[in-house]
Write a protein that binds this DNA or RNA. Structure first.
Lengths: 350, 350
DNA sequence: GTTCGCTATGGTAACGTTACCAACGATCGA
DNA sequence: TCGATCGTTGGTAACGTTACCATAGCGAAC
């Protein structure tokens, strides 16, 4: 058998044909289901396939007219974030159900990299694209620039781009979360979030501000910290809030990274002897594991990134079905749930 | 321009050639760097490329002899686990540095799915494979079955398969973690982990048992719970441990999922009024965010999944370089760090 | 002025695959 | 018995690309 696999090259259909003593066409037909191929020849072919370790060359296959690549291009901003990991999982699952495979790229929030990735994906003849846009210019995302490859945006929308999108109910979630703080009697509420240019950051701030406005409260700019992308900067922002003379009694955190940063700062203060009663309550957009074990009350605005991914893939695949391209762009907002403020774990000190 | 993009098909090099008034070869040469092409023709070609939105068909390109696909196949067990998300990120980063793209599949710990995925990857002419094996039979992973496509195993090894692998120092980490508990005076130590058939589960148990053996302690089978793959079953296992008449005073948790489950059970008991002093200390293999905020002492055996991914990709790419295939199989063990047991956050009850 | 050498350009074939058509033999009805 | 039909098989061409070869043009060197 060693001479069969010599050279490190994949065997071709021709070699299988020779090995089985038939023509390449008979091999092709057998692998396509075996219609109008004598059973004994099919067996011979399959034996040859097994023996040579033959796999059809999908790239060559996709070259033929009318054939598709079976690939979906997925570009996300940060695979290391569990949120996007779950999102990618959801996309992969649905794609796999429909016999598609995903090509994955991480943009790292870099528009140039996003451009490269999308160009590469199109070059690889992907049937469609799923993108968490990293912001910035959108001309490379216009339908004609994509060669009519359908695209679905996830988590964020791009201004001036009329394509399918799956979003969270950012505004509603932030509104409800903030309102729950107001109803608990808080009036000085801090805001931790992304820069304004990030779509979700903007939307979540909007929900936050709307809830305040309903009570006639003008957001105090001193309490609004929104330049934190990472845990460390979020922690620093939280420190600034807590060091204010008139520190907030509650903090709305617009995403996971900010929540973790805020909690780390709270942990630091507790270990330094701070009184838990003087530390703010937190509402966090984005759930995280073990929120229930936090020393201060943490309510979470929860959502399912995996479902978001599944929905994005479903939108995309529906476009790939016959006639699916003629449907106008759709916008899906996935619901979020506000957990009832859990009672914090109170540990008796010694 | 609308008539140019009509039909939803990608433009071909031929169409670009016609549009630019040159031959396909001139287009090809221009796109390949433009050696021996007059500058004015290059400009014409690039203008046509821009206008038509042309992207080279990578699948057709890879068909030509001597060409490679630029694809790396990555199959992991659970993308939803932040650990594997970071792992995939590491692989993607290094692959991208070397101009490769990754095709990603989620096996869900299902050997049949793993088989399918790998067959599909080979059919797509991937240059190499990165696999977190899901256990079970390994015949489909033998080099000759893979058509000499190099493979790198990650996190787990496969018995009887002599290929590159990147592992954590499971045994050493578990040993050191367990020893730290013993040094703190614990003698009844529970074990939460994966089933024995999972490679890491076996190795981490080995480190655990070795540390005990050094002190002349025989592991009490009642304290060893190792069938938990998910948070819920881990929580149930923790409950069984804590309900024992002779409950352990410390618990070694062999992975993230078990740690979260164990902590959730601890949280439940605290909210039900349990005394924190009666709850066990925990050593967790796998770090998690906010471990420092837990109400019981949690020491973590930390490691960097992203680095693990980067190293796996590096091993694979080195095999793809000239002569790289002749190197004997390598085994890399990534170091882990044991955090100093942090002081738990103690909150004064009211 | 002829030849040489170089650059620039285009035609052709092949990569692996399968839709299409042609051809073969067998079966069947008339 | 003969033509028609059907099941089965194989040859050919084309998908988009580029390595290779051929050729045309042009300046330099003798």
């Amino acid at each position: 058998m060693s001479e069969l696999t010599q050279g490190g090259r994949q065997p071709t259909i021709k070699e299988v044909a020779v090995h089985a003593g038939v023509s390449p066409m008979t091999v092709s037909r057998t692998l396509a289901g075996g219609v109008n191929v004598r059973p004994d020849l099919q067996e011979k072919v399959l034996a040859a396939v097994r023996e040579l370790g033959y796999h059809r060359n999908e790239n060559a296959r996709s070259l033929r007219p009318g054939q598709t690549s079976g690939l979906i291009g997925v570009a996300i901003t940060n695979l290391g974030n569990p949120y996007y990991g779950n999102f990618a999982l959801g996309v992969e699952e649905v794609a796999a159900e429909y016999g598609r495979r995903i090509v994955l790229g991480n943009t790292g929030e870099d528009p140039a990299r996003e451009r490269q990735l999308i160009a590469d994906f199109i070059g690889r003849q992907v049937e469609g694209l799923v993108l968490v846009p990293s912001g910035g210019a959108s001309d490379h995302l216009q339908p004609e620039r994509l060669g009519d490859v359908p695209i679905v945006l996830a988590s964020r929308r791009v201004y001036g781009l009329d394509v399918d999108a799956v979003l969270l109910d950012d505004v509603g979630g932030a509104y409800r979360g903030t309102r729950s703080l107001l109803e608990a009697g808080h009036t000085r509420i801090g805001f931790l979030g992304n820069v304004r240019s990030v779509f979700t950051g903007q939307r979540r701030y909007e929900g936050f501000a709307r809830a305040l406005a309903e009570r006639g409260i003008e957001p105090d700019e001193v309490l609004v910290q929104r330049d934190q992308q990472e845990v460390d900067s979020a922690r620093a922002a939280m420190r600034r809030l807590l060091d204010l003379d008139d520190a907030p009694t509650a903090v709305f955190s617009a995403n996971n990274r900010n929540t973790v940063g805020a909690l780390k700062e709270i942990g630091r203060r507790l270990r330094a002897g701070a009184d838990v009663a003087e530390l703010p309550a937190i509402v966090s957009f984005d759930n995280f594991e073990l929120a229930e074990l936090m020393p201060v009350p943490v309510a979470v605005i929860d959502h399912d990134a995996r479902q978001l991914g599944r929905e994005a893939a479903r939108l995309l695949l529906s476009r790939l079905s016959p006639g699916g391209r003629r449907v106008p762009a759709r916008l899906v907002e996935m619901p979020v749930t506000l957990s009832a403020s859990p009672v914090p774990v109170v540990v008796s000190g010694d």
